[in-house]
Computed example of a mutant assay.
Amino acid sequence: MQLVVARIGRAHGIKGEVTVEVRTDEPELRLGPGAVLATEPAETGPLTIETGRVHSGRLLLRFEGVRDRTAAEALRNTLLIADVDPAELPEDPEEFYDHQLMDLDVVLADGTEIGRITEITHLPSQDLFIVERPDGSEVMIPFVEEIVGEIDLEEQRVVITPPPGLIDESEAVVASTRDAEDGDSDGAAEEAPGAGGDEAAGGTAKGGA
């Protein structure tokens, strides 16, 4: 499985270094020296990491063959993509890779369906589930332990306890009723190169993988 682990930002200095927007909680594993990464656009890569260091809180990388500021600036906005074993799990049992959570049903404790996770946004303060409602609208659910009470990968569902005002429960549909009318429409999230992030979301609102 190919997952996005970083996005290249601006050039730093004159010797080919670039800043990167890290999209993994394991940069030492995914973005260490010697790592060979596919890219989006594909014609930019593959890129092999030569060196990496942290400067003013940001990760700086230098790639093999990139020796000056002009070459580094040409890589700006390129996505870095790593091959990840789909069976691989984060070391922390309270964290999950994005691809594990995509397309899970989101329900209340009484079984009322809220929708399905279609996207996970990683913010500095917390992670957000973007949940598509049965009517096609979207709602954002903060991935914090006060709200997300249970993640059951076997049952393919996330149980939440939303605070008042977060969700208009009057528009929710009972999952069993939907299943009876529409049949079982569960499916795996589509996995395409560059389509997902390698970030792991955790109940402690820790983003990245």
Rank of each mutant, 00 (worst) to 15 (best):
P33M: 00
V20A: 11
E154D: 12
I81S: 08
E21V: 04
M140W: 02
L60F: 07
G202R: 13
Q126R: 13
T39Q: 00
P164N: 11
L128D: 07
P163H: 08
L47P: 09
E17C: 11
I120M: 14
A200P: 03
T51Y: 04
V54Q: 07
L101E: 06
G136V: 07
P33C: 04
E73G: 10
A189V: 05
V20H: 01
R23G: 15
E138H: 10
R7W: 05
V144P: 01
G45N: 07
L75Y: 04
D182L: 10
T19I: 02
D85A: 09
L31S: 05
R7G: 11
G196W: 14
E43W: 11
T44V: 15
G203V: 13
E17M: 06
M1S: 03
A87C: 10
R30G: 10
V66P: 06
R157A: 04
D179H: 13
L80D: 04
G202M: 11
A209V: 14
A71W: 00
A188C: 07
L104G: 01
G194F: 01
G45W: 04
V36F: 02
E91K: 15
G115T: 03
D103E: 13
T39M: 07
V84Y: 15
P41D: 03
I160G: 01
A175T: 07
V22R: 01
V106K: 01
L79S: 15
A72L: 01
A72C: 11
P193D: 05
I130C: 02
E40W: 10
A109M: 09
A189K: 01
K206Q: 06
A189L: 01
